[in-house]
Write a protein that binds this DNA or RNA. Sequence first.
DNA 1: GTCTATATGAAGATAGAC
DNA 2: GTCTATCTTCATATAGAC
Lengths: 210, 210
Amino acid sequence: MARLDLDRKEPATGSKPAQILAAARAEFLRQGFAATSMDAIARAATVSKATVYAHFGNKEDLFAAMVASNCRRIAETLAEETLEGLPVREALTQIGRQFLAFLLSPDTQAIYRVVVAETPRFPDLGRRFYAAGPQNTRGRIAFYLERIASRGLIRIDDPARATEMFLGMVVGHRHLRRVLGLDAPAGEAEMAEAVGRAVDAFLKVYPPEA
Amino acid sequence: MARLDLDRKEPATGSKPAQILAAARAEFLRQGFAATSMDAIARAATVSKATVYAHFGNKEDLFAAMVASNCRRIAETLAEETLEGLPVREALTQIGRQFLAFLLSPDTQAIYRVVVAETPRFPDLGRRFYAAGPQNTRGRIAFYLERIASRGLIRIDDPARATEMFLGMVVGHRHLRRVLGLDAPAGEAEMAEAVGRAVDAFLKVYPPEA
DNA sequence: GTCTATATGAAGATAGAC
DNA sequence: GTCTATCTTCATATAGAC
């Protein structure tokens, strides 16, 4: 039960289902699954509890629908970027900044928190989230690295592993600190500096061709 | 409320409090905070619910006591290693393997999961956990890097940042995949290979002195 | 489809005997 | 300190009218 239906259409904006989904999103991300009551969701959606049940069956299905809706958002957010024209160093810097900003944003953090907490109970959840979010992103970055490698701009034997290493260097322990509530939301300047260091290091490990 | 009392003594093994703590640990780590009932804990500890309340007051305090007990364990686990005699490459490899094995172990994963989920409700939890676990480990590694740098074996300007970068390269996305339930428990051979790559990369970024 | 009102059950916490 | 039995609250889910 409660598989994630990623293909289901997004309800029309303004409709009752959309209201309910938005309210569910807000409540689940703020409180987690167990601590969120259907009463609270109905109240936040300015709808009766019976209406919530009419549309989404039960609490688990509503939760799954909310996460699926979120995964669709994530997939849409990652639009194709125009990295082709940029020098390699600039392109990597841009990738690193976008990735880090996305990863550390309050929304991403909240979703991550809930998915991590509920994965044991919703076995599908982790897999689907990974596929729609991180795997998608990593695939795009690996594809970019593959292109510049094949154009002879840089020496990269295994683009997937290179991507992993690059992102590992960019993120460091920032994600952990953020998720444990140790760091303030953003830190624009500090983020730029961290990305700069990671790019420098990456270009030492995978040197550009002369 | 429910601050973490790390200084409280560990109850004598075999005593009722110890039984309760062990049962609470098992249940909370398996189910999370909200989904675990005091009934279940009492049953698992083969004790009445009233006894649980007599010793730990309420559910939140019991949870805090369980996490505190776990943090003490973690701190004890990280014994001083004898890295001094080893060549730098060997020492880094050993550090990387120990760290990765620890990070990906089922116990660590379970604790991480619960702490991440409950940090918004227990503001102290994330900070204390970070201090007792990750920060402790990172501090030790940074200290090692500082020592070999001061002995002229390697060029490292900022040991803390170097540690962060090293661990970032070692971990990559393994932790994320594991926490989302995508990878099997261990993978001894694959882990060794990942560490090997990270050490190679690290020694390109921070070259050993000739 | 949407509401109000309610059944049902679970879980946190306690009273009172031993 | 430890137990059995119970109180109380609250959340999931549904019945039935409109």
